[in-house]
Nucleic acid binder design. Sequence first.
DNA 1: ATAATACTAAACTGATTTGTTCATTTTGAG
DNA 2: CTCAAAATGAACAAATCAGTTTAGTATTAT
Lengths: 203, 203
Amino acid sequence: MRPSKREELVEKSLFVFDQLGFHATGMDLLASKIGMSKTSIYNHFRTKEDLIVDVLRLQDEQFRNWLFRRMYDLGTVNQGGPREQLLAMFDALAEWFEHENFNGCLFLKASSEYSDPAHPIHCQTVEHAEMLEIHILALVKKASMRLPDMVTRQLLVLKDGAISSALVGHTKSAAKDAKYAAQCLLDVHDTSKRKPVQTSFSF
Amino acid sequence: MRPSKREELVEKSLFVFDQLGFHATGMDLLASKIGMSKTSIYNHFRTKEDLIVDVLRLQDEQFRNWLFRRMYDLGTVNQGGPREQLLAMFDALAEWFEHENFNGCLFLKASSEYSDPAHPIHCQTVEHAEMLEIHILALVKKASMRLPDMVTRQLLVLKDGAISSALVGHTKSAAKDAKYAAQCLLDVHDTSKRKPVQTSFSF
DNA sequence: ATAATACTAAACTGATTTGTTCATTTTGAG
DNA sequence: CTCAAAATGAACAAATCAGTTTAGTATTAT
């Protein structure tokens, strides 16, 4: 069996679900949008749910590959280290937000439409979040940050927040704002810098 | 006509849509869940879309009332000022995340399920975001922050990110992480404090 | 009490949902 | 070429979708 047809099905479904949403995309509409018969779809996948889970698996792989590659490329110019790669995450996001097909995060969409934590589709989004966290945490540790676990979670909060803001506000500044916030966080937690001003008193 | 029935309809619909999602909630299911006949619903609202817009209007009012009230109450103990109120936003969020019925942000859900910027439902979420921004901006200015517009947007990015993280990761730490990030931001931009360490070099 | 208003349940559109069936055609490898 | 696997379109099922209609029951003000 040639693998190309099934992969093409998942790839094109990814695009359609991303643009229209999961519940809003019926199987007849999907079939016509991807130029494939419904019979073929159900030949490859038992249910719509199964297809969506595979779509999310592909998006997990594609998004992580793209993000980490882009973070590396943008972050290692001018002898940039792990810190610059972390900050480059927000430059990569900015590129994404500017893309004509940007329509929010597929995983936020999925966890919003299938919010039951026991649902397989929701589980897939949790898995994606965990995979992202592992990679970011490694960079944060390489960048010699205090409280690496917390800083990692904070960076991911900034990432999700930027995506949400970009979707609802159509504000291109979301990525830039998040990046500057991340800079502050990294500065404050950099072990190679003097302990910065504290909350309770002025310098 | 007594207004209570219509208000009750919108209030109960708000709960059901929040729990199940918009597309996933059919009108028959909605009618049975809120204990009201479908005929009555369509007597009050021409379409499902109209109902959802009103539901979002109510949620906008309720959420903002709750959040600002909670920020004020939590932020003004111990002679707290605008800065403490801003930080209290994340304590309020933490309370929300712990609530048994927490199921993410209804506006993020709405803008995700109706992502067309021209759609009335999407417009309602944009309006909500703008109203939030106005109030936060006023507090940021009162707190004597440098770059108040940017700091405001950053705080809102942290808010949305915390909500998203809390939904997908079920991590209660999301609010705490976001609060500490906000503290760093407010410290760095406080005009009454010495200019902190910068990005490009260690102090 | 009367009459208007609000509500109800239930049946009913016509379209759409997920998923199946079937007869036919396309495709690819030996 | 041959043959089996894979894909197709179209019809089909049963359920559900948004929304309407109908006929009848409460409520409420005059």
